[in-house]
Design a protein around this nucleic acid. Sequence first.
DNA 1: CGTCTATTTGAATGTACTCAAAAGCGGTGG
DNA 2: CCACCGCTTTTGAGTACATTCAAATAGACG
Lengths: 196, 196
Amino acid sequence: MVYNSILSNVTRHISLSEEECLYFTSLLEYKEVAKKSHLLKEGETCKSISYVHSGALRAYCIDNNGKESTIMFAVADWWITDMYCFVNQLPAMMYVEAIQGSCIFQLRKDALDQLLNTMPKFERFFRILMQNAYTREQLRVIQSLSLPAEERYDNFILKYPQIAQQVTQKQIASYLGITPEFLSTIRKNKSKRFLS
Amino acid sequence: MVYNSILSNVTRHISLSEEECLYFTSLLEYKEVAKKSHLLKEGETCKSISYVHSGALRAYCIDNNGKESTIMFAVADWWITDMYCFVNQLPAMMYVEAIQGSCIFQLRKDALDQLLNTMPKFERFFRILMQNAYTREQLRVIQSLSLPAEERYDNFILKYPQIAQQVTQKQIASYLGITPEFLSTIRKNKSKRFLS
DNA sequence: CGTCTATTTGAATGTACTCAAAAGCGGTGG
DNA sequence: CCACCGCTTTTGAGTACATTCAAATAGACG
């Protein structure tokens, strides 16, 4: 059943009756998105949060100098959106793009509000989701402030091996906050050291 | 009434009856902490989350090279803890220290769990707390990756003027991920430009 | 008043960036 | 199926941002 993976994602944190599952899934919109297509662009209102059933997406933003920074990757079983603009229904600061052909379930803001009001146990689910996202970002801050680029790269590969396989070096570089040229030199130095 | 500020912090997001207020406040532990004393040290179990009634606290960690990184400041009306270790009841990775004499309310993990189970509306409150913390950290990541130190400093002063007044430059530097020496030169350059 | 820590200053160094150009690779159309 | 196009990756030289180390000065606190 198509809903298996998203339901097991949810029931990892809260338990649902059959009816509750039905109600929850009735709020979802299934979508297939082509590689390189955008779910969201800067300035648009961010209407939905997306669960990745399969494929891979990426959220990024572009600063005043045109520099791109990758905010997050989302592979199978991850949730992704421009959270700040989604919850406050403000114009998006981010782009969300499919980096692989992907299948996703979208939950619109009004549907989420309805879900939270009619089934309060989903408050717990999203509390835990937010809690995990928060602690993950906090760790990332500390690492970006205290570790040199090479160690940040090592940690990324260790922590997200499956993501590292699916994205380009340029995208990893923009996630780590370094230039693609510099990531290339880092990798060259690593293999040099490895050979000697 | 001493509970006014914490109750208005909570009722900013959820509404509480008088009874509910009483129950919630009965779970809190009031504490006065001296400047420079520690609420939490690395390796200890993080038993509580703290609401700052007055004063100022700071969370930081120390890496393998002995370098200190400030993770967050908390002034009046903020919540602070080592969230990851608190929710998972693991040995703390952080220190939490009072940088001013402070009055706080602490909520222990078991009391929080009880609160969430008996009054599910608190799930919503903490969901929103986590949501805000998440989006705040996400913004910080982007800025730490894409902006030079001087702009990060400007943004910090703009965003948290009341914090900037209460903490040392060394602590701000460790929040921004730069050395105190470099923050000093940044400030020198700013005043130089300002005078000319 | 003396001690301890924070801040400032400067010189030497290192990490990471910019710019430019070449090489590699994937997809698309002839 | 091959050739070409555009994008990614590599490489190198020169530069800029930020660090380290050391020493002097200033402030806070008992």
